[in-house]
Simulated scan of single mutants.
Amino acid sequence: MKISTKGRYGLTIVVVLGTKYGEGPIPLRQIAEEQSLSEAYLEQLIPVLRNNGIVKSVRGAYGGYMLARPPSEITSGEVIRILEGPIQPVDGLDDVDVPQRELWKRMAEAIREVLDTTTIEDLMKTNDSASDGYMFYI
């Protein structure tokens, strides 16, 4: 399974908003600048995240976006599914032989397990530990 820029950038938005959780709305422009990402591309992703209850928007001069729930309650699997669709390493499992089908099913389950047990808060902690010699890239 290959995660596209849509999934990676969407997860980046959510992690950045998680680091600022409780501080009020953050302008999308600020996220784009801090992460060196295209603001125009992020503008395409944010409505999908908003419509699916991951972020909420605040209008006005001091408006922007913030997480709709605490970072500990949002999983990376939820974000990836919203932006990328179902998590499956191959299409057309009915067309492959049984040994391969079982392999692909087990792989998909392992991927789901990691994504569904990794919260945004976990990713924030991983990112914080970068100063300890570890680096997490989204």
Rank of each mutant, 00 (worst) to 15 (best):
A61I: 15
A108R: 12
P47E: 01
P99Y: 06
L45I: 12
Y137V: 15
V98H: 07
L28H: 06
L83Y: 03
G63A: 10
V15S: 04
P86G: 05
P47Q: 01
R112Q: 11
A108G: 08
N52Q: 12
M107S: 06
E113Q: 10
I3H: 02
K125R: 15
A108T: 15
P27A: 01
R112V: 12
G24V: 03
P99V: 05
D97Y: 13
G18D: 03
E109S: 14
Y62M: 01
M66H: 02
M135G: 11
M107R: 02
K105W: 09
P71R: 05
Y21L: 03
R8A: 13
E23T: 12
L123K: 09
R50K: 15
D122P: 03
K6T: 14
L93E: 03
E73Q: 12
Y21P: 15
V16P: 11
E84F: 04
R112P: 09
Y9P: 01
R59C: 00
K6I: 14
L103C: 06
Q30P: 00
L103H: 10
S129Y: 12
Q30F: 07
L45Q: 02
S72G: 13
L11Q: 02
E39F: 00
F136Q: 09
R69I: 00
P27Y: 05
D128E: 11
D116G: 02
I74V: 14
V96H: 04
P71W: 01
A61F: 12
E102N: 07
G92E: 07
A130E: 15
E78D: 00
R59Y: 08
L83G: 05
K6M: 12
V114Q: 08
R59M: 07
Q44K: 15
D132F: 14
I3Y: 08
T117F: 05
V55Y: 09
I3F: 15
I138G: 10
G22E: 00
M135F: 14
I13C: 09
L67Y: 10
G18S: 01
G77F: 11
T12M: 05
E39Q: 14
E73H: 04
R101C: 04
S129H: 13
S72H: 09
R69Q: 10
